[in-house]
Design a protein around this nucleic acid. Structure first.
Lengths: 218, 218
DNA sequence: GTCTATAGCGTGATAGAC
DNA sequence: GTCTATCACGCTATAGAC
């Protein structure tokens, strides 16, 4: 809301935001190359040339959209983990990441999910810059899983890096499925966490705690 | 290998195949709209116009590629299940699907995986036709999961349709990840199956077999 | 079957009026 | 800030020679 800002500044930035959102929606729907600047201008009620007052090029526009998506997802996850406090159980941290990530994916779909779909379509220079951002996010999650491995132990046969890959794949793909109707992001994240708790942890928190075999040596 | 075919027919079809493979590779790498017919022609050592002897249009070309990918994945899964015989345990069927699907995804990457990436980029008419194909595949897998639910039972809190969505998401996304190196498709499928066996089934086959509830009636 | 040549169109981007 | 007008280019697709 930020009511204190100057009107003129707010006005121009409002147009900028409108362009960003319209472009993100179109890119997400049709793909990067299939959307022309004329399409974007039409969507916000402008003429093609006017876009260049706000953005240097089509590539500059898409790069800003990509950054908003990737950074947003990572920040949402980190904020959710931060809210747990310093000494939180890493399993709870992972659950917070799952929920925050999946919710962000659906709430900011054009940016976060469109992001994932568009990465392969943009020029290589832009793509490479963003792989670094995603790697930072992946490393962050890997550290949480390592904490879990150290404190709780992972189930026999479960590899930490593949676990991270599979779980994020499961979440990221949830938007692509043809029938997500009736399932909230929270439900999807909860189901995934249930699967991981029972299936990937040596010491499941839900389910019968009584075990006699395979002591989880940390 | 069908040796009996005429040489002239084989020759022309060989060119067709070369075009299909080159186009699939380029589409997968750069996206549908970003690849021009000139790019494809260059890749197979032809001139742009010559492509039209083998294909009606760019759209016709991409549609054939999409079909090869979707049908191939489904047929690979069905063949693997069929090889188990008629009275097979549905859990084994699911494992066969996981392995066949993941292996096909990596072996025929340009068709199967490129397929998944390109679906959002092709004209709506083509896309809609292919959603039907994918639905048939999804229904096939859903039936297997329903069998598991009926014979073994699912773990408390696990929903069959979300389970299908999450597992296929996990597999499909495995190609997009920036670091699949050192992980074979089999390993990925095995890890996923381990996760599902322990996490989603009421009667895990790996792990302590000593249980008193929910007898696994086959 | 493959070539050359080209038609017809849409694109990203720029320049300057207002 | 937004407009009009336009340029230079690349695209899909076609026509006809060989």
């Amino acid at each position: 809301m930020a009511d204190g800002e100057t009107k003129t500044l707010t006005k121009s930035q409002a147009t900028r935001q409108a362009i960003l959102h319209a472009a993100a929606g179109l890119f997400h729907e049709k793909g990067y190359a299939a959307v022309s600047l004329r399409d974007i201008a039409d969507a916000v009620g402008m003429k093609t040339g006017s876009l260049y007052f706000h953005f240097d090029s089509k590539e500059g526009l898409v790069e800003e959209i990509l950054t908003l998506g990737t950074q947003g997802a990572m920040e949402a996850s980190m904020a959710a983990v931060g809210a747990l406090g310093d000494g939180a159980d890493p399993v709870d941290k992972l659950e917070a990441v799952f929920t925050a990530h999946t919710c962000f994916l659906h709430d900011a779909e054009d940016f976060a999910s469109g992001n994932l779909k568009m990465l392969q379509q943009v020029p290589p220079a832009i793509r490479e810059r963003h792989v670094r951002q995603e790697r930072a996010y992946a490393d962050y999650v890997s550290r949480i899983i390592d904490e879990i491995s150290a404190t709780h132990g992972l189930a026999p046969g479960i590899d930490a890096s593949i676990l991270r890959m599979l779980t994020f794949g499961a979440m990221n793909w949830s938007i692509s499925w043809y029938d997500p109707k009736g399932r909230t992001p929270r439900q999807i994240a909860d189901q995934l966490m249930t699967l991981v708790r029972r299936g990937a942890l040596a010491a499941p928190q839900s389910g019968p705690p009584a075990r006699s075999k395979k002591p989880s040596k940390v």
